[in-house]
Amino acid sequence: MKLIKGVKILLVDDEPHILQFLEMGLVNEGYEVKTASDGIAAIETAEKFAPHVIILDVMMPELDGFEVCKRIKETSEHIAVIMLTAKDEVRDRVKGLTLGADDYLVKPFSFDELLARIGARLRNQFPDLLGEVVHGPFRIDDRRKEIIYMDAPLTLSPTEYELLKFLVLNHGIVLSKPMILDRVWSYDFGGEENIVEVYIRSLRDKLNDKEHRLIRTLRGAGYRMDLL
């Protein structure tokens, strides 16, 4: 992803050394950063700072991350929330996502992974900030609703465009059929999950991905875009 100026990130954690480390790294990447060390301060700072992304720790004094996420999403749905948790438990992840979190990271995590997660959220929720985005052989221009692959524009239906964009922007991440349906077809889609297979097959044909090296199928898990 290109270095972006003007993107605002709020860091929320009660561990000073984590705040300092992340703030230094993100400022170096070109982001505008504010910090908060507890839940109440996080909500107050979010109201004044209006961040694009909030990196939100779960375990904090005053208000925990779940409650902070819930309150922020009630008034600012457009803000992307990435939750940090020391517990690699499904119920914690499900609770955070149910309350409106857009992604999560389990401590300890690498800074490069955090950057990738932030980038994915910006590409999905604030494409106008990025304009044209390049990933491997793909160039996505969301303003023109165009995807260029290997320097050639692809002929895509609106749904194919949204599906391929979702796969590319989340490359390297396993995406389940329910997740794809929710993000591409919307939550109220009343059809069958098999529709995803039909569109994946069409994209593979248009990408000449006969050996499934680009769009990989992980049985029982979903699909993963691997950029060559």
Rank of each mutant, 00 (worst) to 15 (best):
Phe166Asp: 03
Asp102Val: 08
Ile180Tyr: 01
Thr98Phe: 07
Asp141Leu: 06
Ala120Asn: 03
Arg143Gln: 13
Ile147Gly: 05
Arg123Tyr: 06
Leu130Trp: 01
Ala80Arg: 07
Ser110Pro: 02
Pro178Phe: 03
Leu175Glu: 09
Leu97Cys: 06
Leu115Val: 11
Lys177Leu: 07
Lys95His: 01
Leu169Asn: 15
Lys177Asn: 13
Leu163Val: 05
Ser186Met: 09
Phe138Tyr: 11
Arg204Cys: 05
Gln125His: 14
Lys107Val: 14
Arg183Cys: 11
Ala86Leu: 12
Val94Gln: 13
Asp209Ile: 08
Ile140Phe: 01
Gly136Ala: 14
Ser176His: 10
Glu197Trp: 05
Ala152Thr: 15
Gly172His: 10
Ala116Leu: 04
Leu84Lys: 06
Glu197Arg: 09
Phe126His: 12
Leu181Tyr: 04
Leu169Pro: 06
Val198Arg: 08
Pro178Met: 01
Leu105Lys: 06
Gly136Phe: 11
Ala80Ser: 11
Gly136Lys: 10
Asp102Ser: 05
Val106Tyr: 03
Lys177Pro: 07
Asn194Arg: 15
Glu197Ala: 09
Gly190Thr: 15
Leu129Glu: 14
Ala101Arg: 02
Pro137Thr: 02
His171Gly: 13
Val184Tyr: 03
Val106Met: 07
Leu203Arg: 00
Asp128Lys: 14
Val90Lys: 12
Val196Leu: 10
Ala152Phe: 12
Lys145Leu: 04
Phe138His: 10
Lys177Tyr: 06
Ile118Val: 12
Glu160Lys: 02
Gly136Glu: 13
Asp88Gly: 13
Val81Arg: 01
Val81His: 01
Thr155Cys: 09
Gly96Asn: 08
Leu207Gln: 05
Phe166Gly: 06
Trp185Val: 00
Gly119Ala: 14
Gly191Lys: 15
Val184Pro: 00
Leu115Pro: 04
Ile147Lys: 01
Ser176Arg: 07
Asp182Ala: 10
Ser202Arg: 15
Phe138Pro: 04
Pro158Trp: 00
Leu130Met: 15
Leu114Arg: 07
His171Ala: 13
Val90Asn: 03
Gly119Val: 09
Leu156Gly: 00
Ala120Asp: 03
Phe138Leu: 06
Ile180Gly: 01
Val196Ile: 15
Gly100Lys: 05
Ala80Gln: 03
Asp88Ser: 14
Asp141Ile: 02
Glu89Arg: 14
Phe109Ser: 08
Glu193Gly: 03
Ile173Leu: 04
Ala86Lys: 14
Ile173Asp: 07
Pro158Ile: 02
Leu154Phe: 05
Lys95Cys: 07
Thr85Glu: 10
Asp103Ser: 13
Glu162Asn: 00
Glu132Val: 05
Asp103Leu: 09
Gly96Phe: 05
Asp88Arg: 09
Asp88Met: 10
Lys87Gly: 01
Asp188Ala: 13
Glu132His: 00
Pro158Val: 00
Asn170Tyr: 04
Arg123Gln: 12
Ala116Asn: 10
Ser157Ala: 04
Gly96Ile: 10
Gly136Trp: 12
Asp112Cys: 02
Arg117Lys: 15
Pro108Arg: 11
Ala152Val: 14
Lys210Trp: 10
Thr155Gly: 10
Ala116Phe: 03
Tyr187Asn: 12
Glu162Met: 00
Phe109Trp: 08
Asp112Glu: 09
Arg123Asn: 06
Phe166Gln: 00
